[in-house]
Write a protein that binds this DNA or RNA. Sequence first.
DNA 1: AAACAAGTTTACGTTAACGTAAAGCTATTG
DNA 2: CAATAGCTTTACGTTAACGTAAACTTGTTT
Lengths: 155, 155
Amino acid sequence: MSRTYSISELASEFDLTTRSIRFYEDQELLHPSRRGQTRVYSSKDRVRLKLTIRGKRLGFSLAEIRELFELWDETRSGSKKQLHLMLSKIGDRRAALDQQMKDITMVQLELESAEIRCRQALEELLEKEPQEKQNEEERTGTSDKASAPSSATMH
Amino acid sequence: MSRTYSISELASEFDLTTRSIRFYEDQELLHPSRRGQTRVYSSKDRVRLKLTIRGKRLGFSLAEIRELFELWDETRSGSKKQLHLMLSKIGDRRAALDQQMKDITMVQLELESAEIRCRQALEELLEKEPQEKQNEEERTGTSDKASAPSSATMH
DNA sequence: AAACAAGTTTACGTTAACGTAAAGCTATTG
DNA sequence: CAATAGCTTTACGTTAACGTAAACTTGTTT
């Protein structure tokens, strides 16, 4: 059990370049084993990669993410002083994330009001100009590869 | 009413350098007026600065933030096609923020479990070594003078 | 008047996070 | 067997978001 992955498998699964994955290893976020000279990634490596991506989406630097990994790894073997330091750092992170939550809520509200404003402007346009023959492109061609399904929000 | 601000006032209020604020202007996030050659910031400018900082905390690039500002500004004067484009972009942003919310929740859970794990390790330490003097390894070359629990800097 | 504080422009330097060749190993496939 | 596919290392290039320094203007204080 617990299968392994090649670098390109992971790359395509998470929509990264192999360059990035090797770079993450260089920054000590990943520690794949080798078969010959070829990198072999375990499920644990895969999880780490997933966490890395998640951290990046939250604006963490690779160095910060590495720090969190190290904290986690050394939790078992830490001395008393080490453990207290870890608790302090974890506390800092949690506080920062709480702040982020608040930020997101604020921005969501602003975007929501922008959307409403936008729809109202559209309605007014349609009232003043009932039926012109203006043909439009319908689809805005902006394909955003990395982002989630865009129909998620509404209300 | 609606007072004005100097660049250094804003800098100290939001804990930025004046360099940053001028840079934001260079990137067209701010448009302060001038008295002579000196920049004069309005309350509206201040709000924009606040939003900029908030956006940065969420991992937006300055270019993205600028885009959002422009969307907002042009909402009133937009054509039908423009308005639909805006709605689409707003939708993308909202979806991305929803994803971020989920990410944060996940990471919060992980940090929480890390904290618990940490506290347990501490408890075990205190049970095995009720009030011993100093023993075991734990002498890591580097002498750390200030052992105060100073809350670690986050950044 | 001289010095100081606060502001300005110009411009080169720096760091993070990759992108983009170039050149070489290695296994398999037509 | 030669070519292709996939992997590797090495190394220089690029972009964003400022930092830092120099040289200058303008107003205020001593």
